[in-house]
Design a protein around this nucleic acid. Sequence first.
DNA 1: TTGTAAGCGTTATCAC
DNA 2: GTGATAACGCTTACAA
Lengths: 341, 341
Amino acid sequence: MNIGEIARRAGVSRSTVSYALSGKRAVSEVTRRRILEVIDDVGYRPNASARALAEGRTRTIGLVIPPAGRRLSPIQLGFVADVVAAAGRHELDVVLSPSGGEHDRSFERMVSGRRVDGVILMEVRVQDARAARLERSGLPFVAIGHTAGAAPGCWVDLDYEGLVARCVHHLADLGHQAIALVNRPQAFLDSGYGPARRALDGFNAAAAARSLTVRALCCPDEATAGEACTRDLLAAHPRITGIVTINEAALPGLERALRRSGRTVPRQFSVIGVVGRHWAEQFHPPLTAADVPISDLAERAVGLLAERMTHPGTPARHVMLTPPLSLRASTAPPPRPRTGS
Amino acid sequence: MNIGEIARRAGVSRSTVSYALSGKRAVSEVTRRRILEVIDDVGYRPNASARALAEGRTRTIGLVIPPAGRRLSPIQLGFVADVVAAAGRHELDVVLSPSGGEHDRSFERMVSGRRVDGVILMEVRVQDARAARLERSGLPFVAIGHTAGAAPGCWVDLDYEGLVARCVHHLADLGHQAIALVNRPQAFLDSGYGPARRALDGFNAAAAARSLTVRALCCPDEATAGEACTRDLLAAHPRITGIVTINEAALPGLERALRRSGRTVPRQFSVIGVVGRHWAEQFHPPLTAADVPISDLAERAVGLLAERMTHPGTPARHVMLTPPLSLRASTAPPPRPRTGS
DNA sequence: TTGTAAGCGTTATCAC
DNA sequence: GTGATAACGCTTACAA
């Protein structure tokens, strides 16, 4: 079923059908009705490929996700679902491209094959080859996370630096003097992964400002690793009374290690972090945390991209999100406060 | 940059360029070289929309995921990544469509707009409106999970019935006499969600065969719910010595409730199930379980779909996966064995 | 071994 | 208010 067939059945020309559908030209009420009736009758929809060819746009965006090998964290996975939902609200479809390395096949198909009108890039690194490629191709794109250098493109990001600093200050305000940061994996930090970098910066800066004794460590995105890291940390630095973390996958293990060491939260030990709301609520006791607003992030990214696709001329824009700290039940003054006792 | 421009630069006709690329017609080595050189030089790629229009196929498959509202379980999310990876191996792109209800916009775009050459349908229910719609459209599709009725289409599925039965038998072999099933949410069971249904059937059948005392309950996909369900279960039925579950999200809570009740696993209580490998390994102690083979599932689904897309005539095929039970550390004979003591 | 030309199903520019 | 008709960029008979 194509537009020609609809035209025939409605007794009009193909262009009239097209215009009746798009509204880009006035069509008399009676013919419009007739056309719409026929369309409804046979369940016609314009062929997407033909339309894309004629219009020069696909009404589709690409979402570049980390390749399947490196297991996606639940938060990233949730982001995918949220991006698709947000795109749907803009009448946009989403094609997925798992690409991390240099020239990935599906990434190249998307970009040079003009399969999409714009791209959302997850997990950008400093010196990101894909961002450079997109820049060169002229395809609009927005990155999730920004890089330290002069980023010419759009991005939306979480203010990990400020958020982690806020966590540190909260702990300091409660009287903690020795705290630790449980960061994302070492490899992420080394490769210049923004959140890991900025979390560390924010942690160090705030801790210095409050003259705290600190220990920053990296931890694989695994509950088992979280348990091991925490165990070792507590053994080596028994005076530490609080942990701030951005590693949600490590949380269950962290909880376990704390319990095993005989520390109850929050009475004897405080935990705070920047993690997805779901993870915070699963923690025991519920974790005081800056809940990472995944669907906001997705919504804003898609919005920014859509804007850029319709107005390619406009200057690049950035969005930095700073969600509030949700006070739950995992933080309290340390067992032996600074003064008194 | 289009095929005409390449042809001009290489001094040949457009068709020769096309054939040099597709290999569907012999092209002399010298011209082929010249063409490929030009292409490489300017980084040309055929426009996907034009190609799709001409060929009558998009080289894209659709993946219908549960809508974002109902949070996707980690296992489902992982499946998405695996499908995309598998599709990539077939040179296929993947567009996502979050659709659950009747006529979803993006689903309709995909199907009637002929945006895709085939569809993978997650989480089919008995009487699935989307499956019916696909059937009607003639678009090849394969469902993940099959429905009780006479399913005319392709599907790949896990043998939950046999797997859960195997778990029951394992427990019975160890000497357990009173066990419980912790199933997926009640709403899933009510709506005819295959895995939940068949898990229950397998549980009841095997338990009857071994004359066990049983208790089957549904549990929301949440750690907190898992804790509550297990707590109530243990309180109401203190003689139960083992749990089999297919609800991985409940696992952390289940573990917690068991510990709180003073039961150590596996010495005093056994747990076994059908869950993702990752979840099984995160359990404490590592869970004896049939590991659901998500990437196998994805691989087979894509393979089946690809086959059906190239040979639409062939009869529908089904794939039923039965992964082995991985013996880990969460099962043992019950504290008070049948005889002796 | 290569070129010419007719589609593919739309949208959009002319005319009327 | 409506109808021809030329793009859009590619594939693929059909000729040569």
